[in-house]
């Protein structure tokens, strides 16, 4: 049986979680915002080398402004977490460190990536200043729209949880 790992993608609503997964799995993007409810699960096989592959089971969780309300059942058996926020909306990252603490309390040993999405809409240098001022550390800055660093991000996480 092929190696299979579960990655949970979570964050506030409207940050682009579904779009990131769609970009990664289907290499497509839609400007239409459709609210996700509950959980959507998709599968993507990543290939590290010839005959060295992994199935990523991507759990796209309903966005919430209260991370602590995420159903524990959804997190069961998680191998990796991607926390996504929208770089254009401060409300999605102003309580970032608190949100991360909540996630870490639920999944203390699970690798976690912090991802700022929609970077195509901002000037990255200004963003870096803003993050520095607010003590925000990210693993990746992505754009589901342009595809910028989306594959790299998932691939890096896959390598980490392999």
């Amino acid at each position: 049986m092929q190696l299979s790992k579960k990655i949970v993608v979570l964050g506030h609503f409207g940050v682009g979680k579904t779009s990131l997964i769609r970009r990664f799995v289907e290499n497509s993007f839609s400007d239409n915002y459709k609210v996700s409810i509950g959980v959507h699960i998709t599968k993507k096989v990543v290939e590290f080398e010839v005959e060295d592959t992994m199935s990523l089971i991507l759990w796209d969780l309903e966005g919430t402004d209260e991370i602590k309300t995420i159903r524990d059942a959804y997190l069961l058996g998680t191998h990796g977490v991607v926390f996504v926020f929208d770089v254009t909306r401060p409300s999605t990252f102003q309580s970032l460190n608190t949100d991360l603490e909540i996630i870490k309390s639920k999944l203390p040993t699970t690798p976690l990536f912090v991802v700022g999405n929609k970077v195509d809409l901002v000037v990255v240098s200004e963003l870096e200043t803003l993050f520095k001022e607010n003590n925000i550390k990210t693993n990746f800055l992505t754009s589901a729209k342009t595809g910028d660093t989306v594959n790299d991000m998932f691939f890096e996480l896959a390598k980490l949880i392999k």
């Binding site: 299979s4 579960k6 409810i37 509950g38 959980v39 959507h40 699960i41 998709t42 599968k43 199935s55 089971i57 309903e62 159903r71 059942a73 959804y74 069961l76 058996g77």
Partner: peptide, 26 residues
């Protein structure tokens, strides 16, 4: 049936009674 059921692998060894997953798209 669907990739959702891959979670069964983590459930089968730990589940003692029952567990419910709400609002799952399959």
């Amino acid at each position: 049936i669907h990739p959702f059921f891959e979670c069964f692998i983590s459930i089968k060894d730990t589940l003692e009674d029952e567990i419910v997953f709400n609002c799952v798209h399959i």
